[in-house]
């Protein structure tokens, strides 16, 4: 049992950490390359690396980041993205928690099977609904507005409903029962008891909604035509087309688009990892 000092054991440990470090380096290298490229001048960025030391640019150009603001209406894109993202976050949290409340606390027959039915819709390839949904929004006159990107978030997503339901089921049933006996309506129980106790899962769902909306490309690409309505993702993509000889600026722009998601991930990773981990475990 106490074979910890055994040479083979030590060798095994060394091997494990070496592999972990090697794979970790591979994971980080693209980020390092991105940041490096964003700090080069226009010439150095397309210069082949002769030796490892060349990885650090000869001169550091922070002004590339300022240059980006001059090249594209970055703040306009940022504002649009923030408006859409806030809408999506509010919509997801609100609608999914309501639906999950139904599955967790309303005692109706077959609700478990209905819940599985909702979960099964996760398997629908989203792309099948793309064209008819576009036609629907076009009939409604919603093209070139933020509505097609925000309103659907108010209809609950199976994954978020799943996360909320799993969390709700861990709340002490006596609490809900007591409120019921006191004559509280379901909406009151939802708003005054269940939601205030559900902060962790609210953060998780909000975080996923944030990532999904911030990174959404196909939605804005389909629905937003005029440039003053574009999101950061659309702006970044179009910037790619104009910057054949300014790769450093393109990379600086990429860094700025990434910073909020990376920051959110670092700040709230506990919630994030819990959410991802839950996806694999059956209800």
């Amino acid at each position: 049992m106490s074979a910890d000092g055994h040479p083979r054991r030590i060798l095994g440990r060394v091997l494990v950490y070496s592999v972990l470090a090697a794979v970790g380096t591979l994971m980080l290298l693209p980020f390092a390359w991105l940041v490096r490229s964003s700090l080069c001048d226009a010439r150095a960025v397309v210069q082949p690396l002769e030796k490892l030391a060349d990885f650090i640019p000869p001169t550091i150009h922070f002004e590339n980041y300022r240059e980006v603001f001059r090249a594209i209406p970055f703040f306009r894109y940022l504002l649009n993205t923030v408006i859409i993202t806030v809408g999506v976050i509010v919509g997801s949290v609100l609608s999914s928690s309501l639906c999950a409340y139904a599955f967790a606390f309303c005692r109706v027959p077959y609700r478990k099977y209905l819940f599985y039915g909702v979960l099964a819709t996760m398997m629908l390839p989203g792309i099948v609904t793309m064209v008819p949904t576009f036609i629907l929004f076009r009939e409604l006159g919603w093209i070139d507005t933020f509505k097609p990107l925000i309103i659907p978030a108010f209809c609950g997503s199976p994954f978020a409903i799943f996360l909320f339901r799993q969390f709700f089921l861990t709340l002490p049933p006596a609490l809900i029962e007591a409120a019921r006996i006191d004559g509280a309506t379901a909406l009151q129980i939802y708003a005054r008891i269940v939601m205030p106790l559900s902060r962790p899962v609210i953060v998780t769902v909000a975080l996923f909604a944030f990532m999904g909306s911030w990174n959404n490309f196909m939605g804005p690409l389909i629905y937003l035509n005029s440039q003053e309505k574009w999101t950061l993702q659309l702006g970044l993509n179009s910037f790619k087309g104009q910057t054949a000889d300014q790769l450093n600026l393109l990379m600086a722009c990429t860094v700025m688009v990434l910073v909020p998601v990376v920051a959110a991930f670092f700040a709230l990773q506990r919630y994030f990892i819990r959410g991802v981990a839950l996806t694999g475990l059956k209800g």
Partner: peptide, 17 residues
């Protein structure tokens, strides 16, 4: 964290990079 980090990168940023 290290291994998960790349998955937060969006399709556009990933494509550009």
């Amino acid at each position: 964290t290290l291994y998960y980090l790349p998955t937060v990168v969006s399709g556009v940023a990933m494509g550009v990079l």
